[in-house]
Computed example of a mutant assay.
Amino acid sequence: MRKQFIMLIVALTLLNCKDESKSNGKLNVVTTTTMITDLVKNIGGDAINVQGLMGSGVDPHLYKASEGDVSKLVNADVIFFNGLHLEGKLVEVFEKMESPTKKPVALSETLDKSKLIGSDYFASNYDPHVWFDINYFKQFAKRVTQVLIEKDPNNAKVFTDNEAKYLAELDKLQKDVQGVVDALPRKKRILVTAHDAFNYFGEAYRFRVVGLQGLSTATEAGVQDVQKLSNFIIDNDVKAIFVESSVPRRTIEALQAAVKSKGQDIKIGGTLYSDALGDAETIEGTYIGMYRYNIKTIVSALQ
């Protein structure tokens, strides 16, 4: 039924939508997650119109397209999404509307699959949270630039200049993050969160990462998961556990209660941004700001 509904919505939208493509001379670009929206805005600047489907705190694993979303997608010149089944429920929409002149761009397709983190428990067999490796996010930036130039060669210099500036900012971010991480002893680098969103971060900065839920928040944590992780926390003398902005707080609170019931105190070290950025008007509403906030929150709580 869900697939039939999507096909109907796409068909009706294609019939009824006016082609607003380049209505003001600029490319109309639609993005999925807040991380990709921020990236595309940095590369495209004032030369493009950007509409992000997902807002702050929105879980992409569970996101369902509305009729308004389908309208935006149909009228887009370019569509960028993460891929690797992160936006699982949107892929059906992409497939129904794909044509020779409009193919949504999965930014993860630019990555070397042999270097990605695999999983036996997720549909794609790859961890989709690749943006937590800044090197991968740089590859995203290069792919966005390439596609925008293909679609609008007249603004090629704008896109390449913006790309160079943004890549320099990402270089500085990497250097600064490494400096903060170096202050935390290796034995304290254990990151316990609501779900497995930080494996690429852990691989890049030598953290042991443990999530209460799996790679997708569609998988609920059970009592046995909570008990097993509470024992791990006690055995490894973990100082803090973390809430995620796009995952209900109750999962981590249940874990905290389980640890305390066994006679050991454990604090909630703060809220981390995982599958979505913070509010648009805040520092955490940008990829770079989110990353800086996360690393300071993690290291401060675990020291």
Score class of each variant (00 low, 15 high):
201 F>R: 04
138 K>Y: 10
283 I>M: 08
170 L>K: 06
118 G>F: 06
278 G>W: 09
268 I>V: 15
102 K>R: 14
192 V>E: 03
109 E>Q: 14
182 D>Q: 15
117 I>R: 07
175 K>N: 11
289 G>Y: 07
302 L>H: 08
133 D>I: 08
173 L>A: 10
274 S>Y: 03
228 K>L: 01
211 G>A: 09
252 I>A: 01
31 T>A: 10
157 K>T: 15
194 A>W: 00
124 S>Y: 05
71 S>V: 09
221 A>K: 01
234 I>L: 04
8 L>K: 12
103 K>S: 12
215 L>F: 10
135 N>Q: 09
115 K>V: 02
132 F>T: 01
96 K>P: 00
272 L>A: 11
148 L>R: 00
68 G>E: 13
72 K>W: 05
268 I>H: 05
97 M>A: 07
173 L>I: 10
70 V>E: 05
284 E>N: 08
290 M>K: 13
274 S>H: 03
137 F>I: 06
69 D>V: 08
154 N>L: 14
237 D>H: 15
90 L>Y: 03
57 G>F: 12
257 A>G: 11
82 N>D: 12
191 L>R: 06
24 N>F: 09
42 N>A: 09
276 A>R: 02
23 S>A: 15
245 S>W: 07
134 I>M: 06
178 Q>D: 12
58 V>H: 01
129 H>R: 07
220 E>C: 04
265 D>M: 10
245 S>Y: 15
191 L>F: 15
167 L>A: 06
48 I>D: 01
301 A>L: 14
87 E>R: 03
99 S>M: 08
276 A>W: 02
